[in-house]
């Protein structure tokens, strides 16, 4: 059995896959416990992390999670609407440069954009939302343009051969025919936004959120809390990813990728 585990491209049974995953988890936890023994250690001990988690919960961790999720969902909603509109109109030659221009803007640094946004938006919470919207949209547009580019010409010709007008081709092949891809683009880009949340939430401490909790913990070098928060952020991110993946497969039976 072990030999199979070490042979490249070997197909292994499902229960063996779980076994391998379990072994790795035990190894990581084991390394964590061993490396945190003694007086000098890089990571806090599991006990310190559990203590950090407890103190975070007592400080209203759930409220902060809800605040972060609301910020994330609000930004994602606005962003996906703007991005889809720009990308779905990009097959029109006159409007294509707009989508391409926004896609190129993803190389702009965050600082420059926040400077101009702070002039335009007075409300700090709005500022958080729009920083996320701008960054999310630039990545959404780039990913969605790639989805459009990958639509085979045969699909367009197929629709045209069925007497579809160009607008019908856009509706049937690009919009309806790629809804599942749009949802997957949202899933992939949400990870980037979730990562950016800590930075963005530090703009407005009063609004709370996981970013504020991390910042405060960082200030006091409370390692137990920092690692506990990292684990919470990671698990919520994975949960969001799983929900969107399940949603795509549930809503679109034909979506097999």
């Amino acid at each position: 059995m072990i030999k199979k585990w070490l042979r490249p491209f070997e197909e292994i049974a499902g229960n063996q896959r779980y076994m391998i995953t379990g072994i790795w988890i035990i190894l990581v936890i084991g390394y964590w416990v061993i490396s945190s023994l003694g007086t000098k250690h890089l990571f806090p001990t599991p006990v310190q992390v559990a203590g950090g988690l407890r103190s975070l919960y007592n400080e209203g961790l759930v409220v902060h999670i809800v605040s972060s999720l609301l910020l994330c969902f609000k930004a994602a909603f606005i962003s996906i609407i703007i991005s889809l509109l720009i990308v779905y109109l990009s097959p029109i030659p006159l409007l294509k440069p707009i989508a391409l221009f926004f896609s190129k803007l993803r190389f702009l640094p965050l600082t420059g954009i926040t400077f101009y946004l702070s002039i335009l938006v007075s409300n700090a919470r709005q500022m958080q939302v729009w920083v996320l919207v701008i960054f999310m949209s630039l990545y959404f547009i780039t990913s969605l343009l790639a989805v459009l580019k990958d639509i085979p010409e045969e699909e367009i010709d197929h629709a045209r051969s069925l007497k579809c007008s160009r607008w019908e081709v856009l509706w049937e092949v690009v919009i309806k025919g790629r809804l599942d891809y749009a949802l997957d683009v949202l899933r992939q880009n949400l990870a980037i936004i979730w990562m950016m949340l800590v930075t963005v939430e530090s703009i407005l401490v009063a609004a709370g959120g996981l970013g504020v909790l991390i910042k405060n913990s960082d200030k006091f070098a409370n390692h137990g809390r920092i690692v506990a928060l990292q684990i919470v952020i990671l698990l919520i991110g994975l949960l969001l990813d799983w929900i969107l993946q399940t949603l795509r497969k549930g809503l679109f039976r034909y979506s097999t990728f």
Partner: peptide
């Protein structure tokens, strides 16, 4: 004109949705 004559390519493309 396009649509007057049906066209089936070798991949038998259909609407995936």
């Amino acid at each position: 004109r396009e649509g007057d004559v049906g066209f089936v390519n070798q991949k038998y493309t259909l609407f995936r949705h």
